[in-house]
């Protein structure tokens, strides 16, 4: 990989300052490092966010749970289980155990890989992304494949999740990468159901309004009968055609509803 300088701030303020002049943030690095090995990224300075205590941890807030931006997936899988089991279960399905020990929620949603798991939970929960400068509603945050509302130098410091009555994630893995070929996250709140799909669309994670309406009326697998998504904007690659992904969206949503119980 290209040469760079690694800096390790101990506070968020120092990290923000270090990022001010075009440096790139490094969180768990589980996606960034392979990219850098291919020399597809050439940051002059990398600012590690892993040593900043205020970005770590899972805690209960006024309106749900708050997860520090640099909290590894394994910590979320373990510590969020008592507050939000559906979210913890999703975190426990990301990558593999070693990746979960390094990869972080902030890194995942800042990258917004169209096949990543976390965006489904964040959008499907209607979470709020907290940065060093503002709070962004999930609905306004994911702007398309690898695109987010984050500005240059802006850091995801936390994600605030409202806790639904029921939620589950059903993931159909791409057999090589183990990312989601299609993943569906469903969450039932008092005021309705949210459904978010990852892995399928050329535009990244998206909500499925028809499924949300049907499930809001009746939170049962049968409620989804007859609902389909158009294949037009779906990803087509070696691992599945657009039609196949559109089909899997229905299957995985149904399975998520069944898993949510």
């Amino acid at each position: 990989m290209h040469s760079f300088e690694l800096v390790k701030p101990k506070t968020l303020a120092d990290a923000v300052a270090a990022l001010a002049d075009g440096a790139q943030a490094l969180s768990g690095g589980q996606t960034l490092l392979p990219t850098m090995k291919q020399r597809l990224a050439d940051p002059g300075t990398l600012v590690s966010l892993t040593g900043i205590p205020e970005l770590q941890g899972v805690c209960q807030g006024d309106a749900g749970i708050i997860i520090g931006g640099a909290t590894p997936h394994a910590v979320v899988a373990r510590e969020a289980a008592k507050y939000y089991p559906g979210l913890a279960a999703l975190a426990g399905q990301i990558g593999d155990p070693a990746v979960r020990n390094r990869g972080t929620i902030g890194g995942s949603i800042a990258n917004n890989d169209p096949s990543a798991c976390y965006p489904a939970a964040v959008l499907g929960s209607g979470a709020t992304i907290v940065t060093n400068t503002r709070e962004i509603a999930a609905d306004d945050y994911f702007l398309g494949m690898f695109e987010t509302a984050l500005e240059e130098g802006e850091i995801v410091t936390a994600v605030k999740f409202p806790v639904p009555q029921k939620a589950a994630y059903a993931k159909f893995v791409q057999p090589a990468s183990r990312f989601a070929l299609v993943g569906a996250f469903v969450a039932q709140f008092a005021d309705g159901v949210r459904v978010a799909i990852t892995g399928a669309s050329n535009n990244g994670v998206f909500r499925w309004p028809e499924a949300e309406a049907a499930l809001s009326a009746s939170f049962t697998p049968e409620a989804l009968k007859g609902l389909t998504l158009p294949a037009d904007d779906m990803i087509a690659d070696l691992h599945g055609s657009a039609e196949y992904r559109a089909h899997l969206c229905g299957v995985m949503t149904k399975r998520a509803v069944m898993a949510a119980g």
Partner: peptide, 17 residues
């Protein structure tokens, strides 16, 4: 690393000083 399994090819040495 500190008791947790990690892929050492995906961690910078300086980051785990």
């Amino acid at each position: 690393v500190d008791g947790k399994a990690v892929k050492s090819c995906s961690v910078f040495a300086q980051d785990v000083e």
